[in-house]
Nucleic acid binder design. Structure first.
Lengths: 334, 334
DNA sequence: CTGTTAGCGCTTTCAG
DNA sequence: CTGAAAGCGCTAACAG
């Protein structure tokens, strides 16, 4: 267990010099730096996380605060997000942990703050006027929220660009020959922007009402052929409903690859003669969104020093075509 | 941010006395203890996690080391386990974190060890001769493994009692009137113990071959009526196959509540006249298993001081009947 | 550009 | 039964 002191001795410098070489917070002579760096991997030095935290440093650690990690129908989507963040954060040389929290208890948050546990926090499943947002803001701990809530001040967040997602999804399906495309909705009216996109592409939009629940989606799948005989593809930005739909659809003769956050599915059956490619998927890539979010989080940590938070809008509309090799879950693609 | 010093001053004792009141590692006078305890919640003192770790204390924190958290077909099962552990650990007054690790990189483990980050570790997805097991053992960090692997020495683990699970599942289904029960298998032969159980209960065991994959299970569901016309219930200890089966089954008219780690499913359709209760489920309760594992972990942390590890066998065959209200995922039951 | 030093909050000897 | 004091490894003034 080599410490900074061992490194300093070997390199013939003071302990603080070692620290400054590592943190880059002070200009260091080239020769000195090299000797320190050499010493570091000679003795196999690794920084002590607890000591950094205690001394008031910025731990290179990103914490994902999640409630109901696995217990909701949309856990699969959250899972893709978490996977993406883990990889994004790791790529930036940080560590990440998942901090399971209960919604009715702030003590988890307190521990994290009190102990200077985390260089930054990613919040998921944020509710209206979430207390965690207030606590983190007030303690000046860098954080970003996945999704948006009104809390009375501005903060960093990441969200999907729904219009863009629709645009890409619809045009993709159009290109494949679909003309009548179902879109899942709850009660809310169809946005004008979506109508415009459909009009531009000259596709017929068929509204499909459902609850954004697993069961809601499954129900759609069940009645689908009867209820929407002319619809050949379907688009959904409702996470739970999309999952329910795709899970159930398989059994109703709608050959659909399971995927995370399916937003657009070609539902033609696998017929060789058909001119429209069968079983293709356009997926909203939750993983990629999350991965960029991870990197962004790290950037905030490194630049902001908890002093100022600026509103950042990161619209991610990355869509991919997985073809027929879609995986069960939102795994990292090579 | 009250510290131990604030508490000491208010209570009129020394700082170390406060520590010993908290840790119980020294006899403390009743009057003194009371004053200290009062002072503690008067100033709202919370221990600083980083300081404890640095000073060589035992952080009241359990770390779950998991690779491929969300990316495998059986993530839902792992999820139920994680949920259970989180709750079990919390009930014991500890915190828990999930430490996502990559399989090919030990640096995550090093950080954890080096910084005395964790009072104890729960390992999941352990592979043959897993290096993490060796590292943790050698560093004398308390840990328990979910599942078993041969590593050349004995360690704490938790596993299912398969025989017991089969016994309870089969007798439950028998009680409901089933006489012909399918059991999912991969290539391995049916164990003698299982045959014996079936014989005792006088139920007809029907072997169902499959891969332990999502797709394997889905396939079974598809052909089920044709292939096994007389089978009215099914038992599976294959996690991924069970999930694939239940996901797909819905669409094939097999009304089955989605559940985590389904091991036994009554597949009769919902007919009011039928004497056998419809849509009931016997589930192997992954959540409960994990929850007890969490408590057990905490016990190890508190008793062992990392000095001796004794082999502990915890056989859990807890099965529950969720009736028709089964949730989508292995959520905590009130 | 580099070194010295005083903490961060807690644990744990060593003294009473 | 209780107190004093020496660290744990690192950060960040403060001094050159």
């Amino acid at each position: 267990m080599a410490t900074r002191a061992d490194v300093a001795k070997l390199a013939g410098v003071s302990e603080s010099t070692v620290s400054y070489v590592l943190s880059g917070k002070r200009p260091i002579g080239d020769a000195t730096r090299r000797r320190v760096l050499d010493a570091i991997d000679q003795v196999g030095y690794k920084s002590n996380y607890a000591a950094t935290a205690l001394a008031g440093g910025k731990p290179r650690m990103v914490t994902m605060m999640i409630s109901n990690l696995f217990s909701t129908p949309s856990s699969r989507i959250v899972g893709a997000l978490v996977d993406g963040i883990v990889d994004g954060v790791r790529d930036s040389g940080f560590h990440s942990v998942i901090w399971p929290v209960t919604e009715d208890d702030d003590s988890d948050v307190d521990l994290l703050i009190k102990s200077n546990f985390s260089g930054g926090v990613i919040l998921m499943n944020v509710k209206e006027n979430d207390q965690r947002v207030h606590r983190l803001h007030q303690e000046k701990i860098p954080f970003v929220v996945l999704g948006r809530t009104d809390v009375g001040f501005s903060y960093n967040y990441v969200d999907r660009d729904f219009d863009e997602v629709y645009r890409i999804a619809l045009s993709h399906l159009k290109d494949q020959g679909h003309t009548s495309i179902g879109v899942m909705f709850t009660d809310n009216p169809v946005r004008d922007s979506l109508k415009k996109i459909a009009a531009q592409l000259k596709v017929n939009l068929v509204r499909i009402n459902t609850q954004d629940t697993f069961e809601g989606g499954a129900q759609i799948a069940k009645d689908f052929r009867k209820s929407f005989p002319h619809v050949t593809a379907i688009v959904s930005l409702l996470d739970a409903a999309a999952i329910g739909f795709t899970n159930a659809a398989e059994g109703y003769g709608l050959a659909i690859p399971r995927d995370v956050s399916i937003i657009a599915v070609n539902m033609l059956e696998n017929q060789a003669e058909n001119s429209i490619p069968p079983i293709t998927t356009v997926a909203f890539n939750a993983y990629e969104l999350a991965k960029s979010c991870g990197s962004m989080m790290v950037e905030i940590i490194e630049s902001d020093k908890g002093k100022k938070l600026h509103k950042t809008q990161l619209w991610v509309g990355d869509l991919i075509d997985r073809g027929s090799t879609a995986q069960y879950s939102g795994r990292k693609r090579s």
